[in-house]
Amino acid sequence: MAESTIPYSFTPGTKAKASEVNANFLALADGLDESREYTKTEVTKLESKLDEKINDINNSNALKDLSNTNFITNCIIDSPNGIASYENTTITVKEGLKVLISDGRNSNGTVKSIEYTVDADIQYTPNMDTEKRDLFISSSGKISSYDIKDVYITTAQPPIEHTEGAWYNPIDNIWKVTNNKGTTWTESNIIKIGTFETDESTITSIKTESPINILKSIDKQQIMNWLFPDYNTIISAPLETVQQAEYSGMLVAMGGTNYSNVEIANISVGSSSTDLVQVTYSRIGGGANDRQTLFVPVPLGYWFKVSGHSSTVVAFFPMKGVTHA
């Protein structure tokens, strides 16, 4: 911005001409206009920079945008209004449905995805010449469907002898479609979101895929709790009996003795009932009037046995992650 100057200066004791005074005022008015324009331009620039920064933050925030994750793909990640419903001959894919559409792999082998969210309900009238069809949505919001006999999900090689169909290649992490009996397969950014049935004139049912649960960093306290015993679900466990853990949990043996030398509790654990390894040894010397408690974590499916004095009480505490407490 140029500095503001006035064209005429007046000295004390001299008369000022009206035209010169007016010219000074006009110069000042021009300067004010210029200043206002300059301020407006600078504010606009600042707003633009702020918008740019906010976009950068949003795009790199995993909680807002999962397209930057390398761990999951080809899945539904949110469906606040459900996934899809049907009425007569029309399927409605619901607003808010959020999917991660497979998009190949990075050079290091990690998966690439396109995150797509349905902005508003999408109506779709399918071909009803087959009884059961898989429902797809593309990264541009286009709905399509294929006879379930023509949809292949886990093969690394292209299926053959199908007039039209869709094929997910897990090696390349990409869906491909054909409409010329498999002569050519074209990469397509689509994802299967459900399967519907028809009586060849109307839709009779729809079964949608399930959204996956994504753990977020704010869930860490809950996750930590899963690894702690649930004291409301304690189960007694018989002594001197080989048992299999039906849940991951903590085995606790509490015992005491009197005058004799007594082995209070020996806990053995193993992956098979015939191959147990003793993991604790607890013995109280003669004359001692004492009590002891032992704790041993036991994973789901492992076998355990507690041997010891008849005063020993054995209990099993399933972990909270098992009991969903």
Binding site: D230, Y231, N232, T233, I234, I235, S236, P238, T241, A325
Partner: peptide, 9 residues
């Protein structure tokens, strides 16, 4: 001989 639920759940 039984396994017994001793908690409240």
């Amino acid at each position: 001989l039984c396994k017994v639920g001793l908690g409240t759940n």
